[in-house]
Computed example of a mutant assay.
Amino acid sequence: MSFSIVCNNPRGGGRLNEADETLGDAVQSVFELDDEDAELEWNGMVFSLNYKYDFGMMIDDAVSLIAEMIASTDGRAVIEWVSTGFPFTWKIDWSDDWVSVLVTSRDPDIEQKILVRDGVKTTKREFVRQWQSVFLVIMAKLAAAGYGERYLSSLRDACDTDRAKDG
C-alpha cells in the first residue's frame, strides 16, 4: 500500500492579487494552468494534480488536515475534495504512528478502478512529509509573488515538524 506526491517543478510566476481572500485564491493567482502538475500516487494509480485548480481547491483542506495531524496524536477526518480533477472523498484515521485512508469517488469510472485497490496505510510521518513537500513548493511561489504572512502562516505551521507528535 503506497502513497506519495511528486511535486515536479511548477513555474508559478503569477502576481500578487490584492483581491484574494483565501489561501486557495492565492494559489490560483500564482500558478498558471499550464504549469507542470504534481503527481499523487495511490497504490500504483497516479493522478495528475494541477497546482492552479486542483491544489487551489484542495489547499485549505489539506493544510487543515496536516495541521490537525501534527497537533494531535490520533484523530479522524473526512474530506470531500471539491476539485473536479480529484473527485474523491477521503476517510482518514490516524494514530501516533499510522495513517489509514479509505477513498470513494464521485466519478463512477474512477470508482470502479479505485475499488479494486486497498485503502492506503502508511506512517503518519511519511503521510505528513508528502503533503509538506507540496506546501513548501506553494509557500515558495507565494512568497516570491509577494504574498505575506496572512497566506504563508498556515502553510508554515503545517510544515512545522517540531510540533509533530510522531517523533
Rank of each mutant, 00 (worst) to 15 (best):
F31Q: 12
L65R: 09
I59F: 03
V46Q: 03
E32R: 12
A38P: 03
D60A: 04
I66A: 10
D34R: 15
L65G: 04
K52M: 14
F47A: 00
M58W: 00
M58L: 13
N50M: 12
V30A: 08
L49M: 15
E39M: 05
V27S: 07
D35W: 13
E32K: 13
S64R: 15
F47S: 00
L49C: 11
L65A: 06
A26S: 11
A67S: 15
D61C: 03
F31D: 07
E68P: 01
N43S: 13
M57E: 13
V27P: 08
D61E: 14
G44H: 06
M45H: 03
D54N: 10
D54Q: 02
Y51M: 13
E41I: 15
S29R: 11
L33E: 12
S64V: 10
G56K: 10
V46D: 02
V46T: 09
N50G: 14
G44Q: 07
A26D: 06
A67D: 15
G56A: 07
G44N: 05
G56F: 08
D61H: 07
Y51G: 10
L40M: 15
I66L: 12
V46Y: 00
M45Y: 05
I59Y: 03
E68L: 11
S48F: 10
F55I: 03
M45Q: 05
K52N: 11
E39Y: 02
I59E: 02
D61W: 03
D37E: 10
L33R: 13
D61L: 04
M58V: 00
K52A: 13
I66K: 10
D60S: 13
D60I: 06
F55C: 02
A26C: 08
D35C: 13
Q28A: 13
L33Y: 12
V46C: 03
F47T: 01
N43M: 09
W42T: 02
L49K: 02
G56R: 10
V30E: 05
E32M: 14
K52R: 15
E32F: 14
D37T: 10
W42Q: 01
V27E: 06
A62W: 03
A62F: 05
W42L: 11
M58N: 04
K52E: 11
N43V: 08
W42H: 05
N43Q: 09
V27D: 07
M57D: 12
S29C: 10
V30P: 05
D34V: 15
A67W: 06
D60V: 10
E41V: 15
D34K: 15
N50E: 13
M45P: 00
G44L: 06
A38E: 02
D35T: 11
E32I: 04
K52S: 11
M58P: 00
V63P: 04
M45R: 04
G56S: 06
D61G: 07
V46S: 05
I66Q: 09
Y51E: 07
K52T: 07
E39F: 02
E39P: 00
N50Y: 05
M57A: 09
N43A: 06
V30G: 07
I59P: 02
M57Q: 12
S64H: 12
D34G: 14
S29T: 10
A38V: 02
D37C: 14
V63S: 08
M57Y: 01
L65C: 06
A26K: 08
